[in-house]
Simulated scan of single mutants.
Amino acid sequence: MAKILISPGKYVQGKGVLKELNEHVDPLGNKVLAICDSVVLDLFEEEVKEGLANKELLLENFNGECSKQEIERLKELAQSEEIEVIIGIGGGKTLDTAKAVAYYSQLPVGIVPTIAATDAPCSALAVIYSEEGVFEEYLFLPTNPDLVLVDTEIVAQAPARFLVSGMGDALATYFEADACALTKASNMPGGTQTLTALNLAELCYNTLMKYGVAAKKAVEAGVVTEALEKIVEANTLLSGLGFESGGLAAAHAIHNGFTVLEETHAKTHGEKVAYSTLVQLVLEDRDPELIQDVIRFCQKVGLPTTLSDLGIEELDEGEILKVAEASCAEGETIHNMPFKVEAEMVKDAILAVDRLGR
């Protein structure tokens, strides 16, 4: 099987770079449809207009769900206005909608995340929901975004929980890629991982451990520091390249399992992934000192290390077994692990992490 690595066409990050958006969009087109969520328009409309001052700009408010109806509405708008490039500015659903609209319109796309909560901005993937917000399907795209631009000044103004959630999502990257390296499991583009992907995944982990606490403090102060720059890059670029080209294993499958429990629905994707990463480490029988290091990191930045932290106040082994069974469903990425994983093993590891986290 061929080794495959995929990535955005261009990645730009720094304080105030939203004002430089025009020069990075230049190679993509002149007539721009910028899809923005309402919060972005309220807070940063002037910066967006300044950043695209030399373009024919149509600003359009995102309706809140990355649904087929919203994608079709915006696609028709792009066609009627003879748009040349789509830009998505905001949170995850806004960005996924922009990717989908660009794909169906056969146009280039630029992605401008305003939080660093997941590694989704760089990916060739969009998650489609119903208009009521219920998950429907994944839309796998043939290419990554042409441009990803992250203004760290804007990221620093968002609540710290978003940055911490991104660290939780990024925490899984190396351990999942490491498992896939052993099994030579397929990555997202359908090949096996390159040496580059595995090393980027490891750099992601090392960056979190070294700079995560300092970056959280920077966001709490609303300032941009080098530690914050490094963590934004880890959350967005290193984790994005690492998961997509390195592969997924137990952690994200266990995250998916946790979604069967309503008590966890108030927790973010990254918060659930962080706990699930600890479960993977226990499943793998990793060095106890490493597990304790990761637990301490999670506790310092505010990521879950107990079931109570996930919203599960009453311990019911039957409910935890349901999580484990969903994690081990056919086709789940847990089967990329270098040993056979069964639901009972996952249940026990989930309960063990809860005890370790206390």
Rank of each mutant, 00 (worst) to 15 (best):
E81D: 06
G88D: 01
G88H: 00
G90W: 03
G90K: 14
T94A: 08
T94W: 02
L95Y: 09
A98E: 10
A98I: 14
K99Q: 11
A100P: 06
Y104Q: 12
S105I: 01
S105C: 09
Q106E: 02
L107D: 01
L107N: 00
L107V: 05
P113N: 08
A116N: 00
T118D: 03
D119C: 11
C122P: 02
C122Q: 00
S123N: 03
A126S: 15
V127N: 12
I128F: 07
E131S: 13
E132K: 10
E132Q: 09
G133E: 11
V134W: 03
F135W: 13
E137G: 06
Y138H: 12
L141T: 08
P142H: 13
T143W: 08
D146L: 01
D146H: 12
V150W: 03
V150Y: 04
D151L: 02
Q157N: 06
P159L: 08
A160L: 04
L163P: 04
S165L: 05
G166C: 12
M167R: 08
G168P: 07
D169P: 05
L171Y: 08
Y174E: 15
A179E: 04
K184A: 09
S186W: 07
P189G: 04
G190M: 06
Q193A: 13
L195V: 11
L195C: 05
A197T: 10
L198I: 15
L198V: 09
N199T: 14
A201P: 14
